[in-house]
């Protein structure tokens, strides 16, 4: 059973031919999934610095945050944390909600 000729003359070897020739269709994204997992493992285990793709993504996110920050600089803060100030609408009027709270007090 050791030589190639002996293997090929074996009837069981002939029976298995169909499995040897079978084309196995693996999932189209299998390779990408494995590489994605490896990327995560590599980052977590510290076996390499962040990949170029990850760096570019983080730079893009940071740039986006800076742009949003600049855009909002002229706007009033959404919540300044000071609840004592009456909430005013753009026209300078106290909102109905605040009026209700005042009445409750």
């Amino acid at each position: 059973m050791e030589t190639r000729d002996e293997l090929e003359s074996d009837w069981i070897h002939s029976v298995f031919e169909v499995l040897r020739e079978e084309v196995v269709a693996i999932a189209a994204d299998f390779g990408d999934r494995v590489k994605g997992e490896i990327d995560q493992v590599a980052a977590a285990q510290g076996v390499r610095p962040p990949s170029a793709a990850a760096l570019l993504t983080s730079v893009a996110i940071e740039s986006g945050n800076v742009a949003v920050g600049l855009f909002r600089r002229g706007d009033p803060p959404l919540d300044d944390g000071d609840d004592d100030d009456p909430a005013e609408d753009p026209k300078g009027q106290v909102s109905d909600e605040r009026d209700d709270e005042a009445r409750d007090d």
Binding site: I26, F30, G31, V34, K35, V47, R48, P49
Partner: peptide, 27 residues
């Protein structure tokens, strides 16, 4: 050798060996 170059080299190994490995495991 690790690093980004090492990771890319390993990804090439994944490309080269994924088909026979999945086939073996299916059987």
């Amino acid at each position: 050798g690790r690093g980004l170059k090492g990771q890319l080299a390993f990804e090439k190994l994944v490309d080269r060996h994924q088909h026979w490995l999945v086939r073996l495991l299916i059987h």
